[in-house]
Design a protein around this nucleic acid. Structure first.
Lengths: 265, 265
DNA sequence: TGTACATCAGTGAACGCGCGTTCACTGATGTAC
DNA sequence: TGTACATCAGTGAACGCGCGTTCACTGATGTAC
């Protein structure tokens, strides 16, 4: 499906194959550039071709049609977002980070403050979204006209990667029993059953109350980022980063408070 | 600016004026219909005209160009969303509602349960978004290509209306002192100052810690809705309403717990 | 090492489409006297 | 009440544009013998 393909055997790629892969990559980069500069909805094959100094028709040697190019772009964006979250966490020691991970100009001096790695992770999410608003829009803004996301694929895989990171940082030190006993409003038996039936490779490995907490937290983080990226927080001026961090810290503390035997975060 | 206009004096509208206003409304409705059926990005003057059995050029008697039509549509959507939240709250007695405000087919029997009006309000927000995903997308999905939102206007006014409702339901019973003493992570002096400087007609009337809680809560609600509406929660099957309610209840309880002297929600 | 052949990246020309916008007009409706 | 005039909603024709996609082709690159 993707045009950046491996040779079917594990044999090293031939010169032709490597060139082809390079050309595909170049096209994808040009398309990314175009999305970044003009927004996702201005993306057209002709514009991409123009950006490369090629004719449109040449693109058809690499992507069967426009949708295929968009699909590749979306998959790439998901992956990059997951990478950004991963890197944010990796760049932070096991415990908590020092306060000033971002170093804003306006002095939101977090005096009291180690920053928990979960918060660092959410800040990675936010930072990527702000740095790449058009690509974030490509993923989360709305389904593109005439484009239907494949149900299972690199997309859901990247989401699971992010989910895995949050899960680790959120529930890392706790036993199954503790998580099972988390104090959340009652789940209906039907919901409980559904959550238990989720794939073990993903959320299904957690007790239902923990899944509920994780989903809620994801929504919380995502919502703040979405509002900011799409311009609905501009009345906060340069303080959006601080509000975000504050919210995420409160969120983490609230979650901890709901798990029996946890010291508040 | 808008084409549905009042006569400049308060004199009753003439026949001509009323007809003109009716025609404008009809155009707006046709445009709305088109957005609903084809998505915001498929909105074209020609399509709207077709839907009305008119020629395109006639529309130029009512809207100077495409952008003006889109602007009117956006303003209308904001207003309808605010109305939906308002109506959800109005339909609920002062205290809390009985559990089954929505009445899903799948039995998420909320046995324990009066539903706080704040939760009812957020469910109004969610319900409108799900009932009108394309119009929700029009507002929050992403800025439309070539469309710049006016900084102040019906848009921000509708947001303030919603904010006011949430504020009342969230902080209604508390004194300024209680809200000022709310237990949130420390706000920097700069942020504190900025929040205190917000317009008194809106958020500025609240103590900074309460503003922080409100914004965080808005993001929380919005994020869960956005993920659901844009299809990122489909793995939850029919249980998204229950997860949402659960999250909002937890959220309210967490907020209450942060205000001194409040009984937990 | 040289030759014949296959592969395939890229081009030129063309298609039919829907779009926003402008212009000059017609004809019905409403207003002033 | 009747007539002359102004208003203005709507039309027909046309503009130039960018789009995705198809087709038949050229010419360079790589492969088999």
């Amino acid at each position: 499906m993707s045009s950046v393909q491996q040779s079917t055997a594990d044999a090293p790629l031939s010169l032709r194959e490597r060139r082809r892969a390079a050309a595909s990559r170049e096209i994808l980069e040009a398309a990314e550039r175009h999305v970044t500069e003009q927004g996702p909805h201005a993306l057209s094959l002709r514009a991409v071709a123009r950006g490369l100094g090629m004719t449109v028709q040449a693109l058809y040697h690499y992507f069967p049609n426009r949708d295929a190019l968009v699909t590749a772009l979306i998959a790439q964006a998901y992956d990059d977002l997951a990478d950004a979250v991963q890197e944010a966490v990796d760049g932070t020691p096991e415990g908590d980070a020092e306060g000033d991970a971002e170093g804003d100009a306006d002095g939101d001096a977090e005096g009291d403050a180690k920053v928990p790695r979960l918060v660092i992770a959410t800040e990675g999410y936010r930072r990527w979204a702000i740095a790449h608003p058009e690509r974030f829009q490509l993923i989360f803004g709305a389904p593109l006209r005439h484009y239907e996301a494949p149900v299972e694929g690199p997309t859901t895989q990247a989401m699971r990667r992010i989910g895995g990171i949050f899960e680790r940082e959120m529930f890392g030190g706790f036993s199954r029993e503790q998580l099972e006993a988390a104090d959340v409003h009652a789940l209906s038996p039907a919901l409980r059953g559904h959550l238990e039936g989720l794939p073990q490779s993903g959320l299904g490995s957690l007790p239902p109350p923990a899944i509920a907490l994780l989903l809620s937290a994801w929504g919380h983080m995502h919502g703040l980022v979405v509002l900011e990226v799409f311009g609905h927080g501009s009345f906060l001026g340069g303080h959006q980063q601080e509000i975000f961090r504050l919210s995420m810290r409160n969120m983490l503390a609230d979650i901890r408070r709901r798990i029996p035997g946890a010291e508040a975060g």
